[in-house]
Design a protein around this nucleic acid. Structure first.
Length: 109
DNA sequence: CTCTTGACTGAGG
DNA sequence: GCCTCAGCCAAGA
């Protein structure tokens, strides 16, 4: 595929798929890694097509560690269930010990 | 081409 | 530390 094919969306998917299990990251972190700090919203927007792309969107939350995107999942607690399955403690849409499980691609990668 | 919307973030009170 | 306002960027109508 040509470079142009690697759109913002595609890059987001690639990074998202690199998120280690039991870890989470923020839209801003991914955006910054892609060199688009001001496009954090686009990251989430891109996740709309994450379904069917093998992208663990449930590991991507906003900077507060809040599951803001859970409404885009099927159930109301599916996202939380997935995270807890990976050893991430989530209470009321809020990731516990967010700083500990936070994974910054621009630093870890 | 213009306007609206959005899974965000940072700054200010 | 919480709430509110404004900015930025891309896609869809």
């Amino acid at each position: 595929m040509k470079p142009e094919t690697l759109n913002f969306f595609e890059k987001v998917y690639e990074v998202a798929k690199l998120i280690p299990e039991g870890r989470v990251t923020s839209y801003g972190a991914i955006a910054r890694y892609l060199g688009a700090v001001r496009s954090a919203r686009m990251v989430g927007y891109a996740m709309n097509g994450s379904v069917g792309k093998d992208v663990p969107a449930h590991r991507v939350v906003n900077r507060k560690g809040l599951l803001t995107g859970k409404h885009h999942f099927e159930g109301t607690n599916l996202m939380q269930q997935l995270l807890e399955s990976e050893g991430i403690e989530v209470i009321d849409n809020q990731i516990q010990d967010f700083k500990k499980v936070f994974w910054d691609p621009s630093k870890e990668l």
